[in-house]
């Protein structure tokens, strides 16, 4: 199945080394990550040494070599979001999920990523949940969003 789809991505691009980045972006979008086997095929079909395929995979932020979670929460840490407190959002995630940006929770539900700018700077801080953009985020709003995404209902009681 996955191979079939790889075929359609490679269609019309075989033996064209300059299509490497485009092919890998399509693969990333389709699979959510770059499977090792697929990269070997890409290397062979495009005629690019495997080392160069891996260099590209590690160089661009868009690529991930590990499967990502069902929910991808992307926190924008661009300048405009930074001065409006995107640090707090990162702290919220770290505290709440116990993972660092770039990681996925153990149950595979949530991946948290940081991005340098999504270009909606006037409305910062911005969080992108899967493909929907959320503006003027606060740690509180993010907490609820993550709880919802994780399917957890946690309530801290007064001591």
């Amino acid at each position: 199945m996955a191979m079939m789809n790889l075929d359609s991505i490679l269609e019309g691009r075989r033996s064209q080394p300059h299509m490497l980045v485009e092919v890998m972006l399509d693969l990333q979008d389709q699979e959510g990550y770059l499977p090792e086997e697929a990269l070997k095929t890409v290397s062979k079909e495009l005629g690019v040494p495997l080392i160069d395929v891996y260099r590209v995979a590690h160089f661009y932020k868009a690529f991930s070599l590990k499967p990502r979670g069902k929910n991808v929460i992307t926190i924008c840490t661009g300048t405009a979001c930074h001065v409006r407190g995107s640090d707090l959002l990162v702290n919220q995630v770290k505290g709440q999920l116990g993972i660092e940006p770039g990681d996925t929770t153990a149950d595979g539900q949530i991946t948290v990523e940081c991005v340098n700018c999504v270009g909606a700077c006037a409305l910062g801080p911005i969080v992108v949940h899967n493909e929907s953009y959320c503006k003027n985020m606060t740690p509180g709003k993010l907490r609820k969003k993550i709880d919802k995404a994780a399917g957890v209902k946690k309530e801290k009681k007064h001591a």
Partner: peptide, 25 residues
Amino acid sequence: ANALGFIGRGKDRHVDHPPGRLMDY
């Protein structure tokens, strides 16, 4: 041989070989 390359960028940049065994390349 294309057995070595720069992997990663910025402070993460390092020299490495493709996944698998180095002797394959």
